[in-house]
Write a protein that binds this DNA or RNA. Structure first.
Lengths: 106, 106
DNA sequence: TTGACATATTCCCACATAGGAATATGATTG
DNA sequence: CAATCATATTCCTATGTGGGAATATGTCAA
């Protein structure tokens, strides 16, 4: 089996740095494709393709406004990611605590 | 440019479900490869290969004990993931709040 | 309708898988 | 050393990219 499709789930979708940059850029306000292209200095087809992947997994919503398409991050879809990583929070806290204690003992 | 290597960063490494399962399984205690194979019902070479990727990005630590290799999750490397997703927390809270308010108004 | 603007899709290619099978390496024991 | 157990690596293949170039689709304005 090859690698899972980027649009198979949120984890695969956000593995690509440009897509994370897009999600950050359109987190607070909806933006047109052109604004994303200008802001991130990417090629237009590239942005459209990334947005397509993000849309397929539900990470962005889209709305037409005249000639433009306005996209916005759908943050709720990032919760699974946050919660999955959060399962390990107790562990890294313990680890950092041990490092701290070791430093203080010396 | 093709897709970035799975061992290029944490985001790519955890995009693969089996690797996430491994990280969960060896989060609390170190485990041998054989234990992982038995617990997750995966082929041994497959587990070794996944562990190699996880090790390359620092997500697991390894230690030899006789014939066995003992692996354990290095949780601190998951913090960047947690923090990145956490940037969007305020947004999904707002969204859930709006949904709630809309429900109460009816 | 035609032209212009905005966005999406298609086609191409080099590359990186993930899994299975086979094999290599490492460590222990007799 | 030889046999065995545990793990790692190599080889193979089908598949899914992400970027660039070209093109298609959609919308508005004159």
């Amino acid at each position: 089996m090859p690698r899972a499709a980027t649009s198979s789930d949120v984890f695969n979708a956000v593995a690509e740095p440009q897509r994370r940059a897009i999600l950050e850029f359109i987190a607070d306000d909806e933006r047109s494709v052109g604004e994303i292209v200008d802001a991130l200095e990417l090629a237009q087809p590239s942005v459209s393709k990334h947005l397509r992947v993000l849309r397929d997994v539900g990470l962005v919503t889209a709305r037409r406004s005249g000639k433009q398409m306005l996209y916005r991050t759908n943050a709720t879809e990032l919760r699974p990611l946050h919660e999955w990583a959060g399962m390990f929070e107790r562990l890294w806290r313990n680890q950092l605590q041990r490092i701290k204690e070791r430093a203080e003992r010396e």
